[in-house]
Design a protein around this nucleic acid. Structure first.
Lengths: 353, 353
DNA sequence: TGTTAGCACTCCATAGAAACGAGTGCTAAT
DNA sequence: ATTAGCACTCGTTTCTATGGAGTGCTAACA
């Protein structure tokens, strides 16, 4: 048996209604809700069919129906296609983000934090944003300077303008000439190289050329290495974790505690980021319903993610986490608009600079 | 009427018992619990007195008693004095921190994060740590370098080795000589100055001397200014927020949601940090019971804070947030030990460098 | 005079019973 | 194919015991 037009309409009505109320919806409600002009009895028959097909579930014999994961999935897939043209819907809130992005602060960190917060406030769900991941980055600039007689400041810039500093202590003060020589040594040998491609042989060669300052060069190389290390545990910013308390189905102690922990230990979220980045099939938007999510503690949630891309292949993820009955419609179109803005604005303003 | 020895002992027994169980404690329990060898009837009389004095409360007529804020306060004040000598009690967990601190990473951020986490795991309460606040700091080093033809990297180091970078875009490439000249200009004029003391007159003088590069110097000064701005919203790291679910009196939706929000919006916690730093009377440990806390959303919690101090007057705060019936004993001694270790270890390892 | 045993009383917590009502499935009529 | 009608199910809410923990008070005791 396939889904005819009418069944689809009924299913849609059930889901819409359930998204709003969070209560199982009965046949009588649907009978009024839709423009089909059918009696509740007819609806009941159809609902029995839909249940048999696995699109809806009856929590107990005398209750209404709620959508199953399969039902949600159908709804979402259907909806995304439909929405394609009316992209400019959720403009209201996204315009504010536009503004934030334009007056972009020096620290990308604070931009992302603010964005997460704003998204959370507008959607009433929990949000997460991962900082763009830098991969295969090339060293753009490396420099050591004397901050005071015993302290050397290392500054490293990689493509994408990620900057890393560290202070190294030295036993004997370096004079200006040595400093200059070492800087030239480092830059001529390392500039333009992908960090991953720096191997042991190169390091030992460098150390050899540095002579008595081999130790110092070694420490500088440690700093270089730490750029990669930093990169491995991706920065993730979250906001609106408290929103889960607005949805009774998530707010019981057991679940709430788990979810809060998940948001706190951002590490678990990074699985989600990874999955999103690898699974991305081109649309850039992904929906995980219930158990589909790669994070087990979120099995009672739905997650909608978007990947955004800056220039130079830096990719990041935005995620919205809410109950199964989240307003997919609004969330997806919000994310779509935001994504497209991010993609374009960031690119543009980076070309300026 | 004053508190005689016996009343004190009874009060103490009540509190101890309540801390453990979280249930109102009755006279019979106390009669067995203490070594006073008194019947429950006698205890009842004493308890009636204690209640009249305001140290304990009866939730309802036929229930046992629970400590009032006044009772907790007495207990805590008493206990702190008693504990003074047995400082080495909570060594177990603190030794691990010792280790972390010794192998201290370059980023203070990650040390503090880890510390917060470890504290939370050991105590089963929520924790917060504020990064040391830098005040009245002097510029130690300032430098601009050319990263690529159109991009200038600004690096600023202030006392305490706080480093700040920013990339500035320029329309026309700068040659080496100009760069050197500007660096000398900036360093000779600004080095050693407290950032707060840089005024408009100096800036305009600098700009004048920079000639055609006045704009660039202006942007550099903006970066300098942002060091202060960064400082104003203190970095605060939290951990173990989910622990509040372990205490039923905090775990109802209303309260939990408020608390989670408080931990998320670190801003509210900064009030606590401020209060702790200003109220500190020398012991370095402070206890806020219930309504005593400056953060309203925590009125059902108790907070124990410690201020730690690194060299150069950099002060930070560690806080442990739990239910009113937190294990003050353990928390206070843990914080004391940790504080003393932080005070000494950090100082020492900074002298090394 | 301080302590204790005993007892009536209070009041929360728990469990069960009863009433309710939303919603269903099925049947028979249209 | 649709619908009205009806018996039935089952979760939710409300009410009513019942039990027990704990108290305050009184009277007896050392």
């Amino acid at each position: 048996m396939d889904l005819d037009e009418r069944k689809l309409k009924i299913l849609q009505a059930i889901i819409r209604n359930y998204l709003e109320t969070g209560e199982p919806v009965g046949s009588r409600t649907i009978s009024k809700y839709t423009d089909l002009n059918l009696s509740s009895a007819t609806i009941r028959n159809e609902m029995a069919d839909l249940e048999e097909l696995g699109y809806i579930i009856q929590p107990h014999t005398s209750a209404g129906r709620i959508p199953s994961d399969k039902g949600y999935r159908l709804y979402v897939d259907h909806m995304i296609l439909e929405k394609e043209e009316q992209l400019n819907q959720a403009t209201q809130e996204v315009k504010e983000m536009h503004k934030i992005l334009l007056e972009r602060e020096d620290k990308m960190e604070s931009v992302l934090k603010q964005m997460a917060k704003m998204l959370a406030e507008n959607t009433n769900y929990a949000t997460m944003i991962s900082a763009p991941q830098v991969r295969g980055n090339k060293l753009k600039f490396i420099q050591i300077s004397r901050v005071d007689p015993r302290q050397i400041l290392t500054t490293i810039v990689v493509e994408g303008n990620v900057i890393k500093n560290s202070i190294i202590s030295v036993a004997d003060p370096l004079d200006d000439e040595t400093l200059l020589k070492l800087n030239i040594l480092l830059n001529t040998n390392l500039n333009g190289l992908a960090i991953e491609s720096i191997n042991l042989a190169m390091i030992s060669k460098l150390k050899q050329q540095a002579g008595v300052y081999a130790d110092l060069v070694g420490e500088v190389m440690d700093v270089v290495a730490s750029v990669i290390k930093d990169d491995e545990n991706i920065e993730i910013y979250t906001s609106g974790a408290n929103n889960i308390f607005k949805y009774p189905e998530l707010a019981d102690n057991q679940r709430a505690s788990e979810l809060i922990t998940t948001f706190e230990e951002k590490q678990m979220l990074s699985e989600l980021v990874q999955d999103t980045l690898t699974e991305d099939k081109g649309t850039g938007i992904q929906v995980y319903i219930g158990n589909e999510t790669p994070v087990k503690t979120m099995k009672d949630c739905s997650v909608v993610t978007a990947t955004y891309e800056l220039e130079e292949g830096m990719k990041g993820t935005i995620g919205i986490i809410g109950p199964r009955r989240m307003d997919y419609d609004k969330v997806i179109s919000t994310l779509k608009t935001l994504k497209s803005q991010l993609d374009t604005i960031y690119k543009k303003s980076d070309e300026e600079s």
